[in-house]
Computed example of a mutant assay.
Amino acid sequence: MGRLGFAAMVALASLGASASAQDAMSIGQFEFANSCVQCHGPAGKGDGPLVSFMTGSMPDITQLQKNNGGIFPVARVFNSIDGSAKVGAHGTSEMPAWGQRYRADAAEWLSYQGAPGEAEALAQLRVLALVEYVSSLQEQ
């Protein structure tokens, strides 16, 4: 199964299967609600409840594609979320890098499941799911 591994696929499937069909949300939508809404707001407009406690303004992430010549900047958004690059508005220390938290969570969960070697792949899948969800918020 390559780099993703069976354990990572099972982990992702179990994340999505935990919600009832009526209340189902994508993994990316779950990650956004859990990690991003507090600052970026439910629609990604930069109006989350924690914004008043921050210095500067929060970026409107619904404009990423428009501000990049109509092409959604997948790698830049991935690297911002993962913490592997400091770029643009997400280059400040106020933007937490979720990649480290995702890797720690994955390592703990997969160790419990008996598949500790797949933590990086599972963390990357979570970041990719979040990137995909942020892409769905883009205004034309």
Rank of each mutant, 00 (worst) to 15 (best):
G83H: 00
G83F: 09
G2D: 07
S84A: 12
L122P: 04
A107K: 07
A107P: 00
E132Q: 14
N34R: 12
A17Y: 01
N67S: 08
V131R: 13
S35L: 13
A123D: 00
A19T: 01
M58T: 15
P73Q: 06
N79P: 02
G2R: 04
S14H: 12
Q63S: 06
G91L: 05
F32H: 12
A13L: 08
N79G: 06
E31N: 14
R3P: 08
P116A: 03
E94M: 15
D105F: 05
S136A: 12
E139R: 13
R101K: 09
G56R: 04
T92W: 02
A7K: 00
L64E: 02
R103S: 09
L15V: 12
Q22A: 13
Q100R: 12
Y112H: 09
F78A: 06
G46W: 05
S18Q: 14
D82K: 08
G99P: 11
S93Q: 14
G114C: 04
V127A: 03
V87A: 15
A85N: 13
R3E: 09
L4Q: 09
A8H: 02
T92Y: 03
W109K: 15
K86W: 10
F72V: 07
L137S: 13
S14A: 12
L130A: 02
G88M: 01
A123K: 00
G56L: 04
I71P: 03
E132I: 10
G117L: 00
T62S: 14
A129W: 07
